[in-house]
Nucleic acid binder design. Structure first.
Lengths: 349, 349
DNA sequence: CTGAAAGCGCTTACAG
DNA sequence: CTGAAAGCGCTTACAG
């Protein structure tokens, strides 16, 4: 069923059919109704490709999620609990705005070509990227495509410093630095002096912010930064688990608390410590980051910094759509607060 | 940059450019290389819409995930831990096969129109649907569209009984009945006689299979089915939590074990029982279903039936793609085994 | 208010 | 081996 067929059945021309579909004002109600009826009857839907080709947008945005893990490994992106709410929220918001979403997972550096490809092939009107590593060159290339692109969790300083603050880009972050400061201060307030950290990926914006905050709070309190207190988890559960196990097995002196760069690694730490016979928070205090569903599923419930994923992803969608529809035509950036949620995983010393 | 431009730069016609792009055999290597070089230089990518319009497929499949929850509620689909691995796995598999995936979440009955729309608008070559409720009419309508469609978790009997086993459809399931039988038998072997169930959605295929198996095993062992032992969780954590709390508060006699229709509800049961001062598995044994990441995160680790989500979603993608590319042209169905994974949440009475 | 026609950027018989 | 041309199904000035 093509518009031509509808036109014939309704006794009008394709032009008129197109006009009613696109809600042009210059169609008298009777004509409109006549056409609409035929469309309804035959469940006609205009071919999206033809529309796109003829100049209408595609009404689809791309969602590119950068994996923290290798593709080959069993540990894929879904191991990051932020993946699900993120995707879900982006899809919902986009759908409610009349947009479809094309989703892609990025593992290796060369996968960024996929983003470029999707833009160049005009499959999408704009893109949202989450979890990008510090890779200005890649970003520069993408930005130069002129397609609307919103980056979630990316260093604004780097964007601006490299003159990448073009009118087709937007950056959405959470205030991870502040949240991390609050978390570590909380531990100090509870009397902790020996505070370790299970690190995320420092080549990630949020990862480095979280670490910098940790470092800075310790320093500002005159507390030493013990290298063996800093575990390299790379945001991955397995890594965190093995690192904690390793520390435990080494017999080295332990900190009394750990600030963990995400909830997943906190969960892994729970596991490792429990297997070692430690009880939380009696023998070790733990603070997470993300406040994903797992935070309240853990026993004891995890004290953690809340990243407002829903707000962020919603904002991201609204932003790309605005950019696509030319409602917004300037570089913009938003940073959402990331408050500490105190629960039961830390004790007063 | 259009194929015309490439053609000019390479000193050939659009036809030839198209031939090299589509890997036609009748292009001599020298011509091919010449064209390829220009394409490379200019990072040319053929407009996907024009290609699609001209007869090539769109190379994108639709992934429609039916939510267990209402859209308005805070409890959205991502609360189901199967969402993430599912989406992730479908996306990965599709991508590796050169397909893009359009993702959509379905909340209400009218959202099924979206599936139809996407097909009718030719946005997708085929669709995968997960979590569909028992709704033959909807399925019938979708199937009649002639677009390739693979249903995950749907009653094959219903499909066949309604002559919906058309050549454009395929059904992928896991053997939930067998898995559930194994789970309940395991409890009985451990000496349990008073076995409750936290039910999923019975209007879902897997939900009803899991329940039927429970019922049938109890009956076959001559054990009574106590109505107040059967809690209505609808696959949702909150519901399960409240149901358990309610049972606990009612002061009624408790079963010694619960078979739970998914891991999420098992986690909720853990929470409710723990808050009541119960210890697992000492005071109550619990078996889950899914074997999602949460199963091993819970303490004690959850004994649960494993649903091979990866295998299922991979198979689903391969199937739609085969259907799209006409490699397969007959109704087909696959059921994956769902074995019981024994861990630490059940005790010998 | 409405139709004929050009154009969007490809692919693919067809002819040579 | 290769080009000219028709066609895919729309939209949108343009003319009336």
């Amino acid at each position: 069923m093509r518009s031509e067929d509808i036109a014939k059945l309704a006794g009008v021309s394709r032009s008129t059919v197109s006009r009613v579909i696109n809600n042009y004002p210059n169609v008298p109600p009777t004509t409109r109704d006549k056409v609409l009826k035929v469309i309804e009857q035959h469940q006609y839907q205009p071919n999206s490709y033809a529309r796109a080709l003829a100049g209408k947008g595609t009404n689809t945005i791309g969602l590119f999620v950068v994996s923290t893990a290798e593709k080959t490994a069993g540990n894929r992106i879904y191991q990051n609990n932020y993946f699900a709410p993120f995707v879900e929220s982006v899809v919902d918001t986009a759908n409610s705005l009349g947009y479809y979403v094309l989703i892609h997972t990025l593992y290796a550096l060369e996968d960024y070509q996929k983003v470029k490809q999707a833009c160049l092939q005009k499959r999408i009107d704009g893109a949202i990227m989450v979890g990008t590593r510090k890779q200005v060159e890649v970003i520069r290339e993408l930005v130069s495509l002129e397609a609307p692109i919103v980056l979630i969790d990316y260093d604004i300083g780097e964007i601006i410093g490299n003159r990448l603050d073009r009118s087709n880009v937007s950056v959405i972050n959470s205030k991870d630095y502040d949240g991390a400061v609050e978390a570590v201060e909380h531990l100090i307030t509870l009397g902790h002096r020996k505070i370790g950290m299970i690190n995320g990926s420092v080549n990630t914006f949020s990862g480095s912010e979280r670490y910098k905050a940790y470092e800075s709070v310790l320093q500002s309190h005159g507390l030493p930064i013990e290298p063996h207190y800093i575990l390299n988890g790379e945001f991955l559960k397995q890594n965190a688990y093995h690192e904690v196990k390793g520390l435990l097995a080494s017999g080295q002196e332990l900190p009394t608390a750990f600030f963990t760069a995400n909830d997943d690694m906190a969960a892994a730490a729970y596991e490792a410590f429990k297997e070692f016979g430690f009880s939380i928070p009696n023998d070790i205090s733990i603070v997470g980051f993300d406040d994903g569903p797992i935070a309240t599923q853990l026993a004891p419930k995890l004290t953690t910094v809340q990243v407002p994923i829903y707000d962020m992803s919603k904002e991201a969608v609204h932003k790309v759509v605005a950019l696509c529809e030319q409602t917004v035509t300037a570089f913009s950036t938003v940073s959402f607060p990331a408050p500490l949620i105190v629960r039961d995983s830390c004790r007063q010393l």
